[in-house]
Design a protein around this nucleic acid. Structure first.
Lengths: 204, 204
DNA sequence: GCTGGCTGACTGACCGGTTAGACTATCCGC
DNA sequence: GCGGATAGTCTAACCGGTCAGTCAGCCAGC
């Protein structure tokens, strides 16, 4: 599977605006944030946003591209560090479950992406690219794990998709918890257990 | 666990408006739909919506309440019809995976609920109520399954939550598929397999 | 003729996008 | 080194469209 890149280009002021936008989208949602507000928080004039991104849609799309590429990169780095297949799964999930606040921000943004993806070509492509990258990473870990006799699955691609579903499903559940801050750790461990169980790993 | 009811009251004209609203929310998303548009599709004047629901937020909330209670009811009915624990799981998933169009409509609405729930008390309560109802239904099936020696799980509540996560996670995945219409059946079977495997059911 | 369900023109706020131009930096010809 | 042309960055006032919610009053049935 060819791994398309997520990030096109990004100058310093663009990244500054993107970071600010990301914070506000996580906090209030795409349609509840006005360009005026982003500009104020970024301490620039509103005009500059349109100067750099032309439209609000472009800004939102760029922000999502940026976030997703950061996440993909962090997962990739975690996989390199760990040695055993189980270790890679654990390391990966430790990275994915970074902190309550950042997870909340990320998943709320991600949900908006999915919602947009179902109605817009541009967001649909972004979602597809991200999924293929992440599923590719998962598949690689699973493939090695199967080769080394640590995991037992029928089809690697199928298993990668299910692993993703377990992770996303539990995140979706966690998002809706009243005590999401306190429950973060518990959900992380729960997810590790569920994924490793699914992959048929030897206990431990 | 006390099962709170979802539906307060609903007159005939209200239900008519709610159905129309549901169709449009699934199609375009909450914030992309104007009251004017809902009124036009329902073939009533715009004023009547505000007359019955007072605010747009009330209308959206009522719509989600209505949809969720319908879904919960349908699941409940499916569980009554089937006999064996595995049969109940399959029947339940057949009902949940009703059709591509209705699932798409429902999950897009559900995602909006989750997004709203994280920022609004009122939507948060609705989401919590629905979750507790559905998780309760799942838990009951699992409990009986365990008693009859068909399922092997440590904690029933924990298992109910994971089952939910698997279902929601695969739906989230499915939503993002380009060929979601064609892939619906495959995802349904995949979900059945994943859930039954998770519950440690005897093969078959 | 009165009441209550119902209407739809209207209002005011909001917001994405435009535009005219200010300010600075770089470079060129003299 | 200097005047000025050019380009790039940035600002603030403004425009036009959209939309939730209001309100004055209509009208059918009692």
């Amino acid at each position: 599977m060819a791994e398309a890149s997520l990030l096109p280009e990004s100058s310093a002021p663009k990244v500054h605006l993107i970071r600010t936008t990301y914070a506000l989208i996580g906090e209030k949602g795409v349609h509840r944030v006005a360009l005026e507000e982003i500009a104020a928080k970024a301490e620039v004039s509103k005009g500059i946003i349109l100067y750099y991104f032309k439209t609000k849609e472009n800004l939102v799309l760029s922000t999502m591209e940026w976030v997703l590429s950061e996440v993909a990169e962090r997962i990739r780095a975690a996989l390199v560090r760990a040695r055993t297949p189980e270790g890679k799964i654990r390391a990966m999930l430790n990275v994915i479950f970074a902190s309550p606040e950042s997870n909340r921000q990320f998943y709320l943004t991600y949900l908006e992406l999915v919602a947009h993806a179902s109605r817009s070509q541009r967001f649909g492509r972004l979602s597809a690219t991200f999924r293929s990258i992440v599923n590719g990473l998962y598949a690689e870990v699973i493939r090695v794990g199967v080769e080394e006799g640590r995991f037992k699955v029928d089809r690697v691609d199928e298993a990668a998709l299910s692993v993703r579903a377990i992770i996303d499903g539990l995140f979706l559940e966690w998002l809706q918890e009243d005590g999401w801050e306190k429950l973060h750790r518990r959900y992380r461990e729960r997810t590790k257990a569920a994924v490793l169980t699914y992959l048929g790993a030897a206990a431990g």
